[in-house]
């Protein structure tokens, strides 16, 4: 198969997988006092594509996933929060990947933390309340934990799956 055709197929399947992970995420109750604590399962797909293929593929699939999952499982407000998180984490993960100095674990942790930071920034803008910054330390810590978990699985996928592109 031509590379383009195969890439298209891989990105399609990845988008489907990311949608399923997004849906699974909505089924997991995460009721902490601080909103925004989540595992970030769908970032598994973004991480995988970023490392295996390139930033453009990862960004494209993430954009489609964020739009569709907000439409299906969320609201306009959740779209704003998701976009803020996705844009910042894609930028940070892309930069870290480019340096080639970090493993999937480091990239994933930085991605999760910057995702949470992006959401806090969006909350500060939407509610025009800078006190929301008080959530940041908590969300940074939860981000490192969830980022580590997702990164560990991501590293395994990167090692085991051969795309043969």
């Amino acid at each position: 198969m031509k590379r383009n055709t195969k890439l298209l197929a891989v990105l399609g399947v990845s988008t489907a997988a990311a949608m399923i992970l997004s849906y699974l995420e909505t089924l997991i109750p995460m009721n902490f006092a601080v909103p925004g604590v989540k595992i970030g399962l769908a970032n598994l797909v973004t991480l995988f594509l970023l490392i295996k293929i390139d930033w453009k593929s990862a960004a494209a699939v993430t954009a489609v996933r964020v739009l569709l999952s907000s439409l299906l499982f969320g609201s306009f407000t959740s779209l704003a929060y998701s976009l803020a998180g996705a844009v910042l984490s894609l930028a940070v993960m892309g930069l870290l990947k480019k340096t080639e100095r970090f493993t999937a674990l480091g990239i994933s942790i930085a991605g999760a933390v910057s995702h949470n930071a992006g959401q806090v920034i969006m909350a500060v803008i939407l509610l025009s309340t800078k006190e929301i910054a008080y959530w940041l330390p908590v969300l940074i810590v939860t981000g490192t934990v969830t980022g580590l978990a997702v990164g560990a699985v991501g590293a395994l996928l990167v090692k085991k799956i051969d795309l043969k592109l």
């Binding site: 100095r101 970090f102 493993t103 480091g106 942790i109 930085a110 330390p137 940074i140 810590v141 580590l148």
Partner: peptide
């Protein structure tokens, strides 16, 4: 070396959280 870099990154993120 890359794993060491990961650890440094993790430590600096946690330090930043603590400082904030």
């Amino acid at each position: 070396k890359r794993i060491r870099n990961d650890l440094i990154l993790l430590a600096s993120i946690l330090l930043a959280a603590l400082a904030a």
